[in-house]
């Protein structure tokens, strides 16, 4: 199934990446090539292949419900690009 620049733009939108037309053409061909390679997975018979039990083997104990003081407000916001009154400041949301 060919990947169009429209597909690329939809994915870029989901991934919140600014992609211009020229990039989209390049991505389309690169993704096409990689996904073409990946196509061969469809030939594998995976009936009954489920590794959930393997993943749960040796399941760890959960965390006890005990509150512990975390970071100070200053440390929490230290790396924030913009802050104001103890909050992280972001541009307005326009859907």
């Amino acid at each position: 199934m060919p990947i169009t620049t429209k597909d690329v733009m939809r994915v870029a939108d989901l991934a919140r990446l600014d992609v211009n037309e020229a990039d989209a053409v390049l991505y389309a061909s690169q993704l096409q090539k990689i996904l073409g390679h990946v196509e061969k997975l469809s030939e594998v018979d995976t009936l009954g292949a489920d590794d959930k039990t393997a993943k749960t083997a040796g399941t760890r104990p959960l965390r006890e419900d005990k509150a512990v003081k975390g970071l100070s407000q200053d440390d929490a916001l230290k790396n924030a690009p913009e802050r104001s009154d103890g909050c992280i400041k972001v541009p307005q949301i326009i859907e």
Binding site: V38, L41, S42, V44, T46, A49, D50, D51, A54
Partner: peptide
Amino acid sequence: KKASEVRAL
């Protein structure tokens, strides 16, 4: 999903 299954194999 397919890749996860092949991973199990």
